[in-house]
Structures are given as C-alpha cells and as structure tokens.
C-alpha cells in the first residue's frame, strides 16, 4: 500500500501525519487521503482538483508530470511526497 508523506510546512496549518492508502495513480492516492482528512484537500489541490501551483508531488524521487489530472502511476511499495515549492518572503 503506498505511503503518503506531507511537508512539515503543512503541519503549521493542520494535522497531517503520513498515511498508508490504496490507489494505483496519484489522483486515487490523494482521493483516499482526502476521504480520511477532508480539510486537507483544499491545501493541496484547487477547486478543480488540479495540483496547486506551488505544491509539488513526488512519487519516490520523481516529480509527477500530470499536475492537472494527477494520472502518474503509483506502485504498492511507492512513497508519495507532498512538498511546497520554494517561494515567498
């Protein structure tokens, strides 16, 4: 079962421990996360389900390529990392 881990920067705003969830693509993995923690959804994707512009998602060591549809594959042993982009001031 894939494991999803969130940037510590998100912990400032709400509780988001690592979760083990079902899913063969990023969109399914995140949907399973949001089913458990609904308030987390708007922090990671926009109204249309697209990855927020300044949030990055990696499957293991590779940044996902489908930021709109989140169709990148995820294997049962993979780890999904949710990071924030480096910007601000």
């Amino acid at each position: 079962m894939p494991r999803v881990t969130f940037t510590a920067n998100l912990q400032r705003h709400l509780d988001c421990p690592s979760l083990d969830v079902e899913g063969g693509r990023v969109v399914e993995v995140l949907a399973a996360v949001f089913a458990q923690r609904p308030m987390l959804r708007s922090y990671i994707v926009d109204d249309q389900g697209r990855l927020r512009r300044h949030v990055n998602v990696f499957v293991n060591n590779v940044m996902i390529s489908d930021r709109d549809g989140l169709g990148d594959p995820v294997g049962p042993e993979d780890e999904v990392f949710v990071f924030q982009a480096l910007s601000g001031g």
């Binding site: 969109v27 109204d47 249309q48 389900g49 697209r50 709109d68 549809g69 989140l70 169709g71």
Partner: peptide, 10 residues
C-alpha cells in the same frame, strides 16, 4: 478527475 487548465478556481 479534474477540470483541465481552464476551469475556474478561487
């Protein structure tokens, strides 16, 4: 699963 790149978002 998503609205593509044109659909609005607040």
């Amino acid at each position: 699963e998503s609205g593509g790149d044109k659909a609005p978002s607040v």
